[in-house]
Design a protein around this nucleic acid. Sequence first.
DNA 1: TCTCAGGGGCGAT
DNA 2: ATCGCCCCTGAG
Length: 278
Amino acid sequence: MNKLPISDINIYPTLLGGQSFAWEYIDGVYWGSLNNRIVKIEERTDGIYWQTFPENDDHEFISNYFQISKDYPSILSRISKDEHVRSGVKKFKGMRILKQDFIEAFFSFIASQNRSITLIRESMRLFRQTFGKPVNIEGKTFYLFPKVEDIANASIETLNKCKMGYRSKFIKEAAQYLLLTGLHLKIEKMTRAEAREELLKVNGIGKKVADCILIYGLGHEDLFPLDVWGNRIAENYYNLDPKLSYDEKLNWINNYFEGLSAYAGQYLFESIRGFGER
DNA sequence: TCTCAGGGGCGAT
DNA sequence: ATCGCCCCTGAG
């Protein structure tokens, strides 16, 4: 196992909060299915330890995924505009935004719409188990994220068995859309505005899902997903008129947080939904 | 058994 | 801009 070169990370809300559906917590160990590899994370008294499989010691991947080089003290001081944020930052001290694989974020957030986080996590686990390649590690079997081709060829019935519900059609057609347009090969190089416009062309992706993909899958920082929780934050904490449009609210919030609204959103979101309580 | 809501989006109006 | 509907699941 390798030691993570940062000591101020809070691994529990980072991996098991609402930003990723790729992790399982089994007997005190975190197992993630990420970018065609399985990652094991252990929290010990002297730090966070990790290993990648089947290729071991992939430092470059871990460094990018955890965004090791981000200056969190600076980010936190810039977003700490009010008591709501300061309270969230204190409560989830050390929580970071992960840089996920675009394709994994793309399908995960299409599958997420109008469902609770525990259900999304279970659904994505079934999805990987059904369509992904198995990998055996330490007597356990894990599954890699399915290939786009296999998702495009999946049957609606089998997707339904992954508890996708009416999202099954979105998932399959979105995979076909990627193969047809090659969007996944171009989108990393696009600006935030271009990428958002392209994502909104996909059936099954509206503004909220697009913004989650832009933040978690593409690393953009100037977005704030306005779901039921985000709207509660906007209305109750910042007194924004609920009748304002999505983009009007987003622009206000992003201006308030000086282009770092994604980070503020992360702490506020986990706070208001009561993650880790009880 | 029933109601309700869940990190929404689509299509008709 | 609004609204009914989409499918399913767990909580209460």
